[in-house]
Design a protein around this nucleic acid. Sequence first.
DNA 1: GCTGTCCAAAGGCATTTCCTATAGATCGAA
DNA 2: TTCGATCTATAGGAAATGCCTTTGGACAGC
Lengths: 308, 308
Amino acid sequence: MLSLHQLRCFLATLEHGSFTAAAGALGYAQPSISEQVRLLEQQLDTTLFRRVGRGLVPTEAARALQPHASAALAAVDEAGRAVASVRELLTGTVRFGVFRTARFYLAADLVADVLQRHPGVRIELVGQNSAEVLEHLRKGRLEAAVIALPVEDENMVVTPVLRDELVYVSADPTRLHARITPADLAAAQLVLPDASWRETDTTRRQLAQAVQRTGHPLRPRIEVEDTETALDIAARGLADTVTWRGVLHGLGDRLPAGLGWAPLRPAMYETFAVVHREGELSPASRVVVDLVTARMRGLDRAMRARTG
Amino acid sequence: MLSLHQLRCFLATLEHGSFTAAAGALGYAQPSISEQVRLLEQQLDTTLFRRVGRGLVPTEAARALQPHASAALAAVDEAGRAVASVRELLTGTVRFGVFRTARFYLAADLVADVLQRHPGVRIELVGQNSAEVLEHLRKGRLEAAVIALPVEDENMVVTPVLRDELVYVSADPTRLHARITPADLAAAQLVLPDASWRETDTTRRQLAQAVQRTGHPLRPRIEVEDTETALDIAARGLADTVTWRGVLHGLGDRLPAGLGWAPLRPAMYETFAVVHREGELSPASRVVVDLVTARMRGLDRAMRARTG
DNA sequence: GCTGTCCAAAGGCATTTCCTATAGATCGAA
DNA sequence: TTCGATCTATAGGAAATGCCTTTGGACAGC
């Protein structure tokens, strides 16, 4: 089969006009070049140079071959550069898994950070739900992610980065007394997000367990997909909801007007962790992992400070 | 150094999703593919596939590499086809050496013939002069040619194809008596072509030898480069000239009006031969050699018939 | 005719390539 | 959970390839 090396030797010979000169240019001995070109001629079943006296004269076939040989070498060159560019994070796509409500914690700031450091890259933040993201990690479709614990997989490196607390949210101040108990939750008219993931979502399961201990099922009056939709509905006074303090913190003044919150007792926590498979992480993922870790931990400190 | 084989293995792996499948497709054992891809990763200093469980997941680097790898393989493929196409005479350039006045013998018909049989080829008919063309042959810049004898080179295959006779040409009928002798030539006002080649041109040398035997030098009154110019001048009555019967034959009714011709005594002949180096001739040259041989021999027969 | 230059051929060493066999890991099904 | 099928990684050996040095032959220029 044709090889790049043969083409290189051929082009050098064409350029320098002799095997000897080509050998000099490429740093080989003359017979090596001679052999490579002969092999090429044999494989192409044609004569590339007429051996006349002590010189070589390229044939028509050689002239026909030249541009394509150059193109092949150029493509390989370009290939190396393209890969290097991905390796150096100059181009390419960075994929990172996130839990559904990550946007309230990381917002666009994470993306801005990455883009500022690596202006050429594309970013994909993928993930509908922590369980789904974990599955992607297991299947290798994602290298790293930030998701809610627990992650029961010994092949994963799990780095907890933020502990958040579930709070009760209502537009009615009278319902925001000091301690909201599971019994209160069971009695309340609730709107809950993550309709499609209610079977696997860890928040749902925590809530359901706590309420069920009171002898009642968790039966939200309204189910929606999106956290913000749930908050909007709560703001209209149609139902109360629960959400993470981090979400309220992240929304800031974009929180629908009129909403207040109160802690649950016993408190319910969710821990988010940066997760990736054991072994080497690609530079791209490394960058995002570090940024996310730093941001989430900063947020964690900020929220604890406010509580304290 | 990056090799095509590595790229082939890489692309097959990418396409089939596993080393095993790629090996099956390429007809190798699985470890061979595995090794080639590992080598490629090593040389590119990057990971192309994440080994996850029993499958492979291409990385961003792999996606960046793919189009360039394909381009390289395509270029090589194209190279092979281009060479094959030259080999099969579908395209490419046919270079053929001709003596200066060949156009009067072969005219455009030769070109038309070649083009009709091989519509893709380019044709170059090069040559200022037989001596110059012979030199090109010796240096290997030309594969084959049709030139005037003698060719004193034992490495050349010489095939005589046409014998032509030098004739005296004048616009004055009184000077066209039956036999033009060297003495007549010495006395005549002559216009001769091939001014630049008078030292090497075989016609000139033959003429000069014959005239010098009469004790006079050959001193043409006028010298021009082109045969047709010489004939034009002769037609104006400014001087007489000599030329080959084949030229008059080839010009046909494009011969300037008013010119007549007479044979020389003793007669002077020039033999044209198809000449090429010993050994294999490229298919392209073979075609032209055969065509020229046939045409010139046909012309030779036609001219002898007219004489007889 | 002599000399320097170039291509071709031969022999030998080192590397690469490819194979088989096997071990380790994982996934899906029983 | 276990078993079997499937895939990758590794090891070791055989074959092929690549490259070198040496040498011979042809040619060009002095």
